[in-house]
């Protein structure tokens, strides 16, 4: 397990100097995302996100278990992020790096704790049975921006996923397979997305969606999670650079604009995929979904 190759002094200086002239290595403007590509698998709940050279696959799966004794009316939702040496040889199996811990913590705060998924709707019989949802995040290619890409992947996969329908008769619950009844989409309350700002020159310059080289030479980062309605779900800051409180307000404004763009793109892709799956035009009739 070799260490991640560090950026050389010359390269570091080069990136700094270019940034002072408002130039990025890949020719993007300072506040522009890399080209985003989102594809869905044949199964429900698989989202493959490509953000520039970064590639993340999220996969949602559902199981039936007993709910936690202290939360009888809630289902279980877990996000699992484990880096593999596929993304970078510096990642070792079974020994989480700082980046991995930060990623899982941010996703936890952004998606789980902001109640993006209504866990109560996963309950089948209070205290006895509930759905346990699990989101596996696989980092396939690593070129920076893992937090943003993973958040997009998990949210897109959650919106794409369909859980099997259940019939409850007293204490008995029957899970209906996809053949018996069309699976139901999850009840998602809002769609939080993360935007990472990287700070340079003691907080004078900030970048949106830094790639790996830019990430390695940054002085600090601010991660803003918000939904397209402009509600901030969390703000996290790592690294030493000092950031002016007023600059944070500016960050949220920029983030809102980006989040709106991203959610629109995700929505479009979801609709395209739904159209593709809805070959005979029977989906509306088959749907077993209840209106909220």
């Amino acid at each position: 397990m070799p260490r991640e190759a560090e950026v050389s002094v010359n390269e570091r200086e080069f990136i700094y100097q270019a940034l002072q002239e408002n130039i990025r290595l890949d020719g993007r403007a300072l506040d522009v995302f890399r080209p985003l590509e989102l594809t869905f698998g044949d199964e429900y709940g698989v989202a493959d996100v490509q953000l520039g050279k970064t590639r993340v696959i999220a996969r949602i799966s559902a199981d039936v278990t007993a709910p936690l004794p202290e939360r009888k009316f809630d289902g279980i939702f877990q996000i699992i992020t484990e880096f593999s040496p596929m993304a970078s040889p510096a990642f070792e199996v079974g020994r989480p790096t700082d980046a991995e811990v930060i990623l899982s913590r941010i996703l936890e705060k952004a998606i789980r704790r902001s109640n993006a998924l209504d866990t109560e709707s996963l309950c089948i019989i209070a205290g006895l049975k509930c759905f346990a949802l699990r989101a596996d995040v696989h980092i396939v290619d690593h070129d920076g921006g893992l937090i943003d890409a993973s958040c997009i992947a998990v949210m897109a996969a959650l919106q794409h996923f369909r859980r099997p329908d259940v019939i409850v008769e007293g204490e008995k619950a029957t899970i209906l397979s996809a053949r018996e009844r069309e699976p139901i989409p999850l009840s998602i309350l809002h769609q939080p997305l993360c935007v990472t700002f990287s700070y340079y020159e003691d907080g004078d310059i900030f970048l949106v969606d830094a790639n790996l080289a830019e990430e390695q030479v940054r002085q600090g980062e601010v991660i803003v999670t918000m939904n397209r309605h402009g509600e901030v779900c969390q703000v996290a800051k790592y690294g030493g650079a000092t950031v002016d409180p007023l600059a944070l307000l500016n960050c949220t404004n920029v983030a809102l604009e980006k989040v709106k763009e991203l959610s629109k793109y995700i929505q479009n892709r979801l609709e395209e995929d739904a159209k593709k799956k809805d070959a005979g035009g029977l989906m509306a009739e088959l749907s077993a979904e209840n209106d909220r």
Binding site: M1, K53, R55, M86, S88, P89, D141, H142
Partner: peptide, 28 residues
């Protein structure tokens, strides 16, 4: 894949596997 030294995706009858190889690299 951009990062790994060698990579391949293999699909066959519903099985899909992504393989990546890094090497030869420094060993512990």
């Amino acid at each position: 894949l951009n990062r790994a030294d060698g990579s391949a995706t293999y699909t066959h009858n519903g099985y899909a596997i992504i393989g990546a190889v890094n090497g030869p690299i420094e060993v512990q």
